[in-house]
Design a protein around this nucleic acid. Structure first.
Lengths: 345, 345
DNA sequence: CTGTTAGCGCCTTCAT
DNA sequence: ATGAAGGCGCTAACAG
């Protein structure tokens, strides 16, 4: 690979001239400029990205940091990434999917900085070492979701309005007349599950039903969402036949309920109302019945997260922002007032 | 940010000693090692990724190169990326999503090399400048899909067995008794559409039906797949009421047919058999009727592509491999022998 | 086992 | 408008 030196020699100019032809940081005479470019083309020269980045201390790359163990993008991530990429695209940034195994990063040998200008942190958990580390090293970051306690006010973040959304979903079911509402919540350790649970319970208390029983399960990540939904339906509907409605963590869990109901001879929404937090992985409109959902907007989230990050990279004043993206209720066919119900199993 | 020099001074050793403590490229005495690590921790030192990469000429990053204009990942990409990431993960590589706008890359200022060790090229088209460029600069690459002509035998690639798969789908419908089969092919300029079309036509000729009419349309990327399917169904089924079966480019197009049939009062599969090349974006099993499909395996494709690329990065002998990933036929409910049919419109 | 000396390829002063 | 020299932070080759 030819270097800047080769071009300089071949064109009979100095390195800095060549450098400036490419960086356009200082004026170069038309004549020299053309000669240099011609030679560069001739030699098939292209500036070395790393060398430049090393010198200017900027990579124009942002990192998307997922927890290492289980790298498996789902529909939500897909939308999210599309949002991120769109924003990157507009600002000439690139995206590095930063998912290295934990033990790899533990190795002394690889305890190095990242080749990024900043990081987007996905799925924050309490005691998140990643956040701690970036924060200490003064690396720009933005958290998607609610940052763990110590960083709640010191780190920029974007999040869905999970608590109000869960409240809204619950209120919707309550308003239909349901009183025994099962909540299939997100995995327990996520900050999101705590927030949503609050909303769920708040809706009851707001309705003057604080004494009323609530039913909560947490998604088990060791099995598929559909399977989890199916199993939960089978056990919970059997154990608590009074349950007449369910709120699920995502649309695949809801699908598990569809299946279970099918087998149990229950019909939706007559025997069971279903409402799902939807990441868009199912085509809610194509299910029978169509699925009422609280629709997350992953793309907006990705967009806003990126904006927040790029802001930190370009602006000098440091402001800690927190952006809330609305989750919207989409009424479809899977919810109705509670009716007669016969559990045939 | 502290550098290797700071650590060296503070620990009273030389730069190279510090370097080797981290890189483990030569033995360091237990005592010195511990002292250096302690100091490093104290100073919050981490080796600079860029500086190291510049020196060793390796980034441990591979690029996923999509065409610039329309960065929008779909379900296929999602599976694909999951396959890629999985392989990256195992080998301590990272993934750079490399989608820069075309005009950005045109700018002289940014005509730089990429910070990657190699590239995966998605959606190759004829006259693909990206391939040309990487090839000329001797940068390891692998193409997903069939590489354009000049590079067919000089560039490693992974691909689906599109032609045989299209043939198989067609033969399946022929064997059910269909003779008027509509083929909603991929966008015309893609290499994949050419391959599949061959398979479709070959099936007819193999069945001794070379003289029989074929019906082919190409997906229009300016509208959504569902919309395209719907519109195509409306026009083609009206214009050619003899059509009794359709093969679609993806499952959303098939869904468009489902909708159209619904409106037209046609039932699937009695009036129209539907079979789709499926990227897994729909849950074929959850549709009514369940959708018979030729299932692509994006994850395997991503995995194999990455393997091929990493092979080039680690092995010295250069072998041009071409990996074919099988597309499998999943028989479900949407296909049946042609029956009576009344177009009520 | 450790230190010294050159680079890696670019950018950035400071000159002229 | 251009050149020369030094530096970004790290690794590599040679020395001992």
């Amino acid at each position: 690979m030819p270097t800047i030196n080769d071009v300089a020699k071949a064109a009979g100019v100095s390195k800095s001239t060549v450098s400036n032809v490419f960086s356009q940081k200082r004026p170069i005479s038309q004549e020299v400029r053309e000669r240099v470019l011609a030679v560069a083309k001739e030699l098939n020269y292209r500036p070395n990205y790393l060398a430049r980045s090393l010198a200017i201390k900027e990579t124009k790359i942002i990192g998307l940091n997922m927890i290492g163990e289980k790298i498996k993008f789902n529909q939500f991530h897909l939308s999210f990434i599309n949002g991120v990429l769109n924003e990157c695209y507009q600002n000439d940034y690139r995206l590095l999917i930063n998912t290295l195994s934990d033990d790899y990063k533990q190795q002394v040998i690889n305890l190095s900085s990242d080749p990024t200008d900043g990081e987007i942190i996905l799925n924050p958990s309490r005691e998140d070492a990643r956040i701690q580390e970036l924060f200490e090293n003064n690396i720009p970051l933005v958290v998607v979701g609610r940052p763990p306690k110590p960083f709640e006010d010191t780190v920029p973040s974007v999040d869905n309005n999970n608590s109000p959304a869960a409240q809204q979903a619950t209120e919707y079911l309550l308003s239909l007349g349901h009183r025994h509402i099962l909540f299939c919540n997100a995995p327990k350790k996520r900050t999101v599950s705590i927030d949503r649970e609050k909303g769920y319970e708040y809706a009851f208390s707001q309705a003057g039903l604080s004494e009323h029983p609530t039913y909560i399960t947490y998604r088990d990540e060791t099995i598929t969402s559909i399977e989890f939904g199916y199993q939960t339906a089978m056990t919970m509907l059997h154990k608590h036949p009074e349950i007449s409605a369910v709120i699920t963590d995502n649309d695949k869990v809801a699908l598990g309920f569809y299946r279970a109901c099918n087998e149990l001879g229950l019909s939706i929404p007559e025997d069971l109302s279903v409402i799902a937090f939807s990441d868009g992985s199912m085509y809610s409109n194509e299910l029978t019945p169509t699925l009422t959902s609280m629709t997350l907007n992953g793309e907006t989230l990705g967009l806003e997260a990126t904006k927040l990050l790029l802001e930190q990279l370009t602006k000098t004043e440091k402001v800690i922002k927190r952006v809330m993206v609305q989750i919207k209720l989409h009424e479809r066919e899977s919810c109705a007032p509670p009716g007669l119900k016969g559990l045939k199993n």
